[in-house]
Amino acid sequence: MARKDHPFFPHHALEQALQFFILVAVLLALTLWRPAGLADKADPLNTPEHVKPEWYFLAEYQMLKVVPRTVGIVGMGLVAALILVFPFLLDRDKAKYRPLQRPLFFFSGIIFVVSYVILTVWGHYS
């Protein structure tokens, strides 16, 4: 599975160039398919029917609709703080890197991602 070590140039640089062109293609395809839109000018007196944040805030938004707001916000702050500093405290054993050698971290990561996706989809359709 693992490849041989290879020099940065030209091997790695060419791979990156390929990825860059794929990225540009994706960007241009999205742009040509649906150019960025613009709603009516902001009107503080006129609340639109469906107010929703961008998709990357939808999961948080949906969670705050379900759990009490203060609990949700404090919880998010705690989770963010934990994500920020946990490598100094937990899961520091370098010898254990396979998923089943560190099941707690591996599966809590999986559960986090899955629930994030579910909340986003739920937020999108609610």
């Binding site: 709603a39 609340t47 107010v51």
Partner: peptide, 16 residues
């Protein structure tokens, strides 16, 4: 962009 979507999304954000 200061359009309706921008204004009300920011309203939600600042409420949070």
């Amino acid at each position: 962009p200061w359009d309706q979507r921008a204004y009300w999304a920011t309203t939600v954000g600042t409420e949070m």
